[in-house]
Write a protein that binds this DNA or RNA. Sequence first.
DNA 1: CTGAAAGCGCTTACAG
DNA 2: CTGAAAGCGCTTACAG
Lengths: 337, 337
Amino acid sequence: MKSKTLKDIAKALNLSVTTVSKALNDYQDISSATKQRILDYVKKVDFTPNTFATSLRKKESKIVGIIVPAMAHYFFSKLLQGIIEKAEENNYLVIVLRSNNYELEKIQIRRLLKQKVDGIFLSLADNSYDIDHLEEISKSDTVLIQFDRVSKIAQSSKVVINDREAASTAVQHLIDRGKRKIAHFRGGLMPQVAIDRFIGYRKTLEKNGIEFRPDYVHICEKGNETQGYDAAQKLLKQHPDIDGIFAHTDMTALGAIRYLKQQKISIPEKVGVVGFSNWEVSALMSPSLTTIDQPGKKMGKAIFSQFLKDLKTLKAKEKIEFKTKVIKTQLIQRQSS
Amino acid sequence: MKSKTLKDIAKALNLSVTTVSKALNDYQDISSATKQRILDYVKKVDFTPNTFATSLRKKESKIVGIIVPAMAHYFFSKLLQGIIEKAEENNYLVIVLRSNNYELEKIQIRRLLKQKVDGIFLSLADNSYDIDHLEEISKSDTVLIQFDRVSKIAQSSKVVINDREAASTAVQHLIDRGKRKIAHFRGGLMPQVAIDRFIGYRKTLEKNGIEFRPDYVHICEKGNETQGYDAAQKLLKQHPDIDGIFAHTDMTALGAIRYLKQQKISIPEKVGVVGFSNWEVSALMSPSLTTIDQPGKKMGKAIFSQFLKDLKTLKAKEKIEFKTKVIKTQLIQRQSS
DNA sequence: CTGAAAGCGCTTACAG
DNA sequence: CTGAAAGCGCTTACAG
C-alpha cells in the first residue's frame, strides 16, 4: 500500500501543500475553519507525514540512542525502562546499542551520529582511556548525556549516584551492626565508580577508628557471582576472623554468601554481607541480601529529562550549562546484615 | 559543525554528484581509478551520506523495531541481545518499545510504521484479541516477525519454542523422579503459551496413567514470585500429599520453593519443583532450580535472520513464504528435582 | 565512463 | 489568510 503524501491531502481538499503543512504544524497564520477541515480529513484517512522528509528538512530525528553493556543486567534493564517511558511520553524513539569496550564504543557512537540521533546516552566502558569520541558527539550538534560511569573531564550533563556516599552508608551500617573486620570486594582499578566506592569504604573505616587493611580488599573486576565466591574463599582462608563484607555488586555479594553458607559460617551473626545495586534477586535469596538501592528507572527518567533541557538550549543556539544530577540511593536492610 | 554532503565531495574532486554517489554505491559503470579517488577522499574526510536523504529516496530505513513487555525480564533481555547483535552485524539499528496490553501495542506499532522501520518484531500481549494491527503492518510493506506469543491466524513468519513439548519434558522428568501427585501453576487462560504448557502437562500425566486433577492446577497469571508462594500455600493446605510442582515461570517456581522451605517441606525429597525459562537466578538459588532452558539469545538471532530473508523476498516483489522456526529447549536439572 | 536533471516528501521564507 | 517556489541531500533513469 502506497502511503499518502501531503500532496494527496492537498489535492483532495483543493488546497496547497503549504497550507496543509501549516495546519499540521500549528502555524498561526491559517483560518481555524481551514485548519479544522484539514485536521478532520487527515484523521479520517489516517495520514502521518513521512518522517524521512521531515527529518531531512528539520534536521532532527526524534530518535535518541543509548549504549549499554553487552549483557543482561537488571540495573540497565530498569534504566532503559525509565528512558523509554519518558521518551515515549515525548514522542521520541530509542535505539539501543551494546558496547563493553572502548573500540566498540567508538563504532557505536559513529553509527548513532550517522543516524543523526538527537541525543546519545552513554556510560563509559571500563577501558575507555580518552574522550575523543565524546567530543565528536558535541561537535556534531548532538546532545550527550553521560550516566553512571562518567568522565570527569568530558563536557556534558551527567546523571550519577554518589558512589562514595553510598559505599560509606553500606560500611557504616556494618559497623553499626557491630562489625569491625570488614573486607571489601571491589571493582577494577580504572573505573571511577570502583574507585569511589573504595574510597567510601576506606574513609568510613578510618572515621570510625578502624584500621584500613589492604589485605582485606579483593578485586572482583567482572562483578559476577563466581568472583565473589572465589574472593570469599581466599579472604576467609587467610583471615578467618573477618566479620563483614562490603561487595561492589549484588552478584559478588551472592557469591560470597554461597561460600559462607557452604562453610557453615553464619550470616549475619558471624559475617555480615552488604551488596550494591539492589537487583531483583537480592530480595529472593536466602538469606536475603542487604544492599544499596540504585534506582535505575529514576536515573533513566532523569537522563531523558536532562536531554530535553539540553536539546532545547542547543536548538536556541545558546550555550548549554552542563548539569550533574545526583540521584539518591538508600540502604535496603535485609537478612544478610 | 555542519556535516559534509555529496555536493561538497563532488566539488572538491571536480566531479559530479552523480559520479560520487555511484562510487559510494558500488555501481559498475565507473572507472576504477575515479572510484578509488573518491573512496580515498571520502575516507580521508570521514564522510557518510545523510541517512534521511538516503531513506527518503530508497524508502528503507535500515531500522527495525521490537516491542517487549514493560518490565525487566531476563528472557527478553537475552532475546534483545541476540537481535541487536545480529542487527549490528548487518548494519541495522534497533528501536525498542514497550507494551503489555492490546491498546498500547497498537499505538507502538503505529509509531514504528510512522518511522518506516523495515521490520517489526512482536510478541503479542495477553489481551490482544484481534490482529487488525498486525494486518496493518503487512499492508504497509513492513516485515512482521512474531515470536514467543504468536497468533496462529496472523500471516507472518514466526520464531517460537514448542511449549507443549517443553512442558511435557518437565512433567515427564518429575514422573521419572518418582513423583505422582504433580501440580501445575499455569499462566492465564488466554495466552497460547499458557494453554500449550498446560496441555503438555495434562497429556503427559495421562500418557503415564496418572489421573489429571483440575484441583491440582492453579492460575498464576502474572507469573511472579508472590503468586507462586500463594499458590503453593493454597495447594498444600488442600493437598498436603502433593509431591511435584511444575510452574510456568521460574519466578513462580521460586515463590513455591520459598513456601516449601518455610514449611520445612524437603525439596526435592518430599516435593520436586520444576520451573520454566532458565533465568539467571535459577542457578543461584538454594536449592537451585530445575527448569526448561528457553534460549533467548538464540531466538533473537533467529528472529533477525528470518527478517532478513523475508525482507529480501519483499524487496524482490515476490510473495513471502511464511516460515515458523521452532527453537529447541532443554531441561536443566538442578537441586530442586 | 561521466553528468544534468528529476524527484523522494516535506518545511519555510516570501509574495500577494 | 493562502500558495508558489526553493531546497533539505540523496539516488537513478537517461543522454551523451
